[in-house]
Write a protein that binds this DNA or RNA. Structure first.
Lengths: 125, 125
DNA sequence: ATATATGCAAAGAGTTTGCACCACG
DNA sequence: CGTGGTGCAAACTCTTTGCATATAT
């Protein structure tokens, strides 16, 4: 366990929700200057292989989150970028509906769901 | 309407399903050599603004598709990369369910849905 | 001691931008 | 003739990789 790795893990553990590799790099460097991007990517991959992290695809690209935060679906407003999430129960209900008709076992957590939040629906199209 | 633009539009119209900007570039160049990537991107943006195309986010990045193909949700198997899709009716049913509980009006077509296809569920995890 | 993590530098993919030039209409 | 599309070159972001070095255990 190197200082770099420790700093990355600490940063991840202090993060609620998701964070991009670039942001991990930026924040880690505030504590341990000089940490190389490749170290960030390699460590994120490792932590994902170990089952500590998962990544999801949001509009701006990949974002990592701790697995122990519980499964949830990202809802992102395409107009104001506001984020909300679907609980595990709701998500799994939807997943079962898809599975029932397609034999496809969906994981709604891997990609975000785009749409319009309540506020932006009223405001415009 | 320039030859480049015409070639791009022709390529798009001959494409069933989705295609990445890079692939559009590659295929267009087979017909009209020398077409510049920036022309591809600018034209795709234009066609999207005009409402002819939309883009969706798949595992490998953005993919464009004709709007007149009808709304559908991309289902991609995370193991074998097989693709399937959800019909408009099914998609809209799911969208209504999300909307009911969150006041969020989802567009399930913008991001793909990852998961395991029927075949890969049996094969492994 | 030795397995392995890091830094470095380079490369690579995808995408965007400013600008001069050319062409369509 | 003028608007605007195109090519070109450069730059930018994000990410990956090979290799020599440094470090944890």
């Amino acid at each position: 366990m190197t200082p770099q790795r420790r700093a990355i893990v600490v940063e991840i553990m202090h993060t609620d929700g998701h964070i991009s590799p670039t942001d991990v790099a930026r924040r880690v460097r505030e504590r341990v200057p000089g940490v190389n991007p490749s170290t960030i990517y390699r460590t994120l991959d490792l932590l994902e292989d170990l089952g500590v992290l998962s990544h999801a695809h949001l509009e701006a690209g990949p974002e990592y989150h701790r697995r122990d935060e519980g499964r949830h679906v990202h809802l992102v407003c395409s107009r104001c970028r506001a984020e909300d999430s679907l609980s595990m129960e709701e998500a799994e209900r939807l997943e079962r509906l898809v599975a029932r008709h397609h034999g496809f076992a969906p994981d709604l957590t891997h990609f975000a769901i785009s749409g319009l939040c309540a506020h932006c629906q009223g405001a415009a199209g």
